[in-house]
Design a protein around this nucleic acid. Structure first.
Lengths: 226, 226
DNA sequence: CGTAATCTTGACCAACGTCAATGTTCGTGG
DNA sequence: CCACGAACATTGACGTTGGTCAAGATTACG
């Protein structure tokens, strides 16, 4: 599978590498279950096998900023493995299975296998690009554009992994999650969604995202052009 | 020098490594000069030696989001070297000197020297933490807090490099730059600055940032607590 | 010394947040 | 299968924050 290889590239043996020998643990999670906790060092490096998870921070005021949505194939907690106590939390949104690679062994492998290190570096740099785009979205876009952009990002990532159809994808996040991701209040998210639906740009129905015309949403949100 | 070593760690020979042999080019820049351009592949990996630079994106609407401030010791354009055409631009704010490492040679070294790759990975992960914090700041903080946080981030980074005093540091950015960094309009930045000065939390005077009481600013902006 | 860039402010307007009430969905126990 | 409660979704009314416009003051620099 091509995208599977690209997606998991960093964590797969390209040609029978040592990574196969790292100790793994498969963990099943219920919605709301923690993967990593703010302030605690992570036991290892996690990969989401299926289901959705969130990476987020909580402020003194109690409000929450969702830093990223973790989809199947995404990894989390590398920073904590290499740098110490995590600055963010991560928890499952849906029922999910994650795979844990032993932290110490990951570090050892990083020190000896440049291919592994380079793979992880590449995937971090791709994430960095997405993070830059999110920053721009929060700093410089209006409510409807933000939501449109956020949705396109998720849709495209799912599509690259064969988890989306031509006109939509699953969308298990709640309105509050969406609000905390795009930096708006829940009520204002509602207003924006209503407007987006009225203009038939996109719509959330049940736990599904519906995009009648992907090109239109891309244009609307400036996706890819940022 | 301890922090110098930590700062430049990724790009320094820890024990006589191969990096010394990479071709370097020293480049002097005037304010406003481009380091990298959006859409173009970078020639190499840049390190700021002295002076300030900005990493930013421009939107269709013409507005600009500053993604990060590059201070002496920071590197830029690794993503472009490894992944292709840059998604952001970077340009000097002050007169600056940057050092360029040949891109192809950096890639080669990455493939052969795990220590080098791991060093860069670590520094990317530290940047990731700062990026997370910036996202939270844009998504969930009010104007004055944002500015306070932004200033503390710069102040602390400069201090770690011996470039700040106990009560302040240089601050060559314009009001517009500040606005584009924290996601506000220039006028509103003015309002917030006036308020911050009135409460004697911080003040910009000339091209200097003055922080009468660092602990107070830290508390005010929730710096470190996010 | 003059011009352009930057800074600063007031007045007004739009976007977004908060509060509160009502409807809807979904899981659970009977 | 139904009843019920809890969590979630939706909307209106209203308050606050931040954006826009425009004008005058200040600074930087040739």
């Amino acid at each position: 599978m091509l995208h599977r290889k690209r997606q998991f590239g960093a964590l797969n043996s390209q040609d029978g590498a040592l990574i196969e020998r790292i100790k793994r643990k498969r963990i099943a999670l219920a919605p709301g279950a923690d993967i990593i906790t703010e302030g605690r060092r992570s036991q290892g490096l996690y990969t989401v096998c299926d289901g959705w998870a969130l990476r987020y921070q909580r402020l003194r005021t109690g409000s929450r900023q969702i830093l990223d949505v973790l989809l199947p194939g995404d990894t989390v907690a590398l920073a904590s493995v290499l740098l110490g106590p995590s600055r963010h939390a991560a928890q499952a949104v849906t029922f999910a299975n994650v795979c844990m690679l032993n932290g110490r062994q990951v570090v050892t492998l990083l020190k000896t296998d440049p291919r592994f290190a380079l793979g992880l570096l590449r995937s971090r740099l791709e994430e960095e690009r997405r993070a830059d785009a999110r920053l721009t979205m929060l700093g410089r876009m209006g409510a409807e554009e933000r939501i449109g952009y956020f949705m396109m990002d998720i849709y495209e990532r799912l599509r690259g992994r064969g988890l989306a159809s031509a006109t939509g994808c699953p969308f298990p996040l709640r309105r509050v999650d969406l609000a905390d991701a795009v930096g708006l209040s829940k009520v204002h998210v509602m207003r924006a969604l209503r407007e987006l639906r009225a203009r038939s740009v996109m719509e959330i129905k049940g736990r599904e995202l519906i995009i009648p015309d992907v090109a239109q949403l891309v244009a609307f949100a400036g996706y890819g052009t940022v």
